[in-house]
C-alpha cells in the first residue's frame, strides 16, 4: 500500500488488487488469507489483514484491523466522535471476502459509506449470505446513541477467483498447526 498512498486509484479492480496483496501477506503468515483496504477521496488510508492465529483472538479480522488503525490515528489527532463518523461516511472498504456478521455489524456501527467484496462468505456472511446487515437502518442501533447502525452500499463479486484461489492455496498448503481433518480446501469463510 505504501506506493499507493499518494496515488489516486480508480475502479474496483485496482483497489481489490491491493486488498488481495494484504490477503497474500496473511497467507505468508499462515493466516486465513483475507485482506482489505480502506479508501477515502480515492486514496488508500488504511489496510488490514486477518490476524486471528497470531493474536489468538478470532475477532481480529482484516476489516477490524484496518478500521482500528484509523480509529487509533484519528483519536490521537483529537478527532471527536462526530468528526470520526464524518470521516467514515466518506470511506469505502475493499475486502477480498464478504464481511462476516460481526464485521458487517461493525462497519454499520461506524457508518462506512460503501463496501466492495470478492467472494461470498457462505458460512458467516453479513452482507447478504446469512444476514443482510448492510441493508438495515436503525434496527442495529446500539445502546450508545453515537454509534447508530447505518446501512451501507455493498457490491460483491469483485475478482472472485483470485480471492478464492488464495483461500484454496491456504487450505491446500495446509496449516502446520492444523490437525489432519482440517487440511482441506474450503472456499467459504
Amino acid at each position: 500500500m505504501e506506493a499507493c498512498d499518494t496515488e489516486e486509484i480508480r475502479g474496483a479492480d485496482p483497489c481489490m488488487k491491493l486488498a488481495l496483496q494484504q490477503a497474500k501477506l496473511a497467507l505468508n503468515n499462515l493466516e486465513v488469507p483475507v485482506g482489505c483496504i480502506i479508501i477515502e477521496d480515492e486514496k488508500v488510508i488504511a489496510s488490514g489483514r486477518n490476524r486471528t492465529t497470531e493474536t489468538r483472538n478470532a475477532t481480529r479480522h482484516a476489516e477490524l484491523e484496518a478500521v482500528d488503525i484509523l480509529l487509533d490515528q484519528w483519536q490521537k489527532k483529537g478527532l471527536s466522535n462526530v468528526d470520526i463518523a464524518k470521516r467514515f461516511s466518506k470511506c469505502t472498504l475493499y475486502v477480498t471476502c464478504e464481511p462476516c456478521i460481526m464485521c458487517a455489524a461493525a462497519l454499520s456501527i461506524i457508518g462506512i459509506k460503501e463496501v466492495f467484496y470478492g467472494c461470498a462468505n457462505d458460512k458467516f456472511g453479513g452482507c447478504g449470505s446469512i444476514l443482510a446487515l448492510h441493508t438495515s437502518q436503525s434496527e442495529w442501533s446500539t445502546r450508545d446513541e453515537v454509534s447508530n447502525g447505518k446501512g451501507f452500499k455493498c457490491t460483491g463479486g469483485i475478482m472472485v477467483s483470485e480471492a478464492i484461489s488464495l483461500l484454496q492455496s491456504f487450505y491446500e498448503q495446509g496449516n502446520p498447526n492444523a490437525p489432519k481433518p482440517d487440511r482441506r480446501p474450503v472456499h467459504n469463510l
Partner: peptide, 19 residues
C-alpha cells in the same frame, strides 16, 4: 509452539471431524 488444534482457523473451515 505448535498447537494441538487448528487455532483460530476452525471458523473458516467446515470441520465436522475436529476434536
Amino acid at each position: 509452539e505448535p498447537v494441538g488444534d487448528n487455532c483460530c482457523q476452525a471458523d473458516f473451515v467446515d470441520s465436522p471431524l475436529t476434536v
